[in-house]
């Protein structure tokens, strides 16, 4: 297992700056999510960790080994990673078994061992009855399970997942979240997960990096990002919010046009915006009965 360290990485395609001075450190065994809208640079970052793109500046290390940096470039095949793509990328000319066995064959593992290991993996991803099938005979969800199994097969130090669930239907997407999380915990793997879906990020991650325009807006535990967004972008991107205006004075905020108020920091004065998560609003009848409750 391994950690991933990204230091001051900058990347542009032509005049288009994708990432600006990006630094982050994903700890060993951590489930780290890069969350942001499309075009924010999260996939490019992931592809640089994988080695498919080279940073213009900055360094990347995996498990303490520098893989990108001045005069250093380790090609993708020597980085010891596992990767799952949005498009599954299951090779159509190989059977399910051969797909999963491929990384093991490259490691020149003995045949018997490969067989044993592949069957283990297929069982973990619930695909053990399908070993002889061709990918074209499988559904999208099953193909993604194969892709996951293939990435797991070589016991990589780090797993990279690039929006693995966005091509699946809603029900399956929720099931797969738990399966992926379960596998990560079982193998105590470092996972770098890219998504634009905030609920995916919230339910799976140990740490979330919210990215916008090639920069980290905020990083932290899901609950911190949700409860204490530092900025408007993070606040709005991470979930629904109601905005009310108010007047702050002497450690109290009074909502405009009402006599309702909240306690706040004593240093805040003047016109303010109050953001309330919808799930924090309760409706109570005049008699004091809860008409709606937090689920």
């Amino acid at each position: 297992m391994a950690s991933v360290k990204i230091e001051h990485v900058t990347k542009s395609f032509g005049d288009n700056i994708i990432l600006k001075d990006f630094s982050a450190e994903f700890e060993d065994g951590q489930f780290a999510t890069l969350l942001g809208p499309s075009g924010c640079g999260k996939t490019t970052m992931l592809r640089m960790i994988a080695g498919f793109e080279k940073p213009d500046e900055g360094e990347i290390s995996i498990g303490g080994r520098k893989v990108n940096g001045k005069d250093v470039f380790v090609p993708p095949e020597n980085r010891g990673l596992g990767m799952v793509f949005q498009s599954y990328a299951v090779w159509p000319h190989m059977t399910v078994f051969d797909n999963v066995a491929y990384p093991l064959k490259l490691k020149k593992m003995p045949k018997e061992e490969i067989r044993q290991r592949v069957m283990e993996i297929l069982e973990i991803v619930h695909m053990d009855q399908y070993e002889k099938r061709r990918p074209s005979e499988l559904s999208g969800g099953q193909q993604q399970r194969i892709a996951l199994g293939r990435a797991l097969a070589a016991q990589p130090g780090v797993m990279l997942l690039d929006e693995p669930l966005s091509n699946l239907d809603a029900r399956l997407r929720e099931d797969m979240r738990f399966e992926i999380k379960d596998i990560q915990q079982r193998f105590r793997m470092t996972v770098v997960y890219v998504t634009h879906d905030q609920s995916e990020a919230m339910t799976m991650s140990d740490i979330i990096y919210v990215i916008n325009n090639g920069e980290i807006e905020q990083s932290g535990r899901p609950v911190d990002i949700y409860r204490k967004p530092r900025e408007g972008f993070v606040r709005d991107f991470i979930g629904g919010v109601d905005l009310l205006s108010g007047e702050a004075e002497g450690g109290r905020i009074r909502l405009k046009g009402t006599d309702q108020g909240f306690i706040c920091d004593e240093n805040i004065h003047g016109s303010v915006e109050v953001a309330i998560r919808p799930d924090d609003i309760y409706i109570i009848s005049p008699e004091g009965r809860f008409l709606s409750s937090k689920q």
Partner: peptide, 24 residues
């Protein structure tokens, strides 16, 4: 990504060419 997966799995570009690209 079909070829990229092969690279991540540990195959060199040439190996990828002969085991994934050309068979496909």
């Amino acid at each position: 990504s079909l070829e990229e997966t092969s690279r991540v799995s540990g195959a060199s570009p040439v190996k990828t060419l002969f085991t994934v690209t050309i068979p496909m």
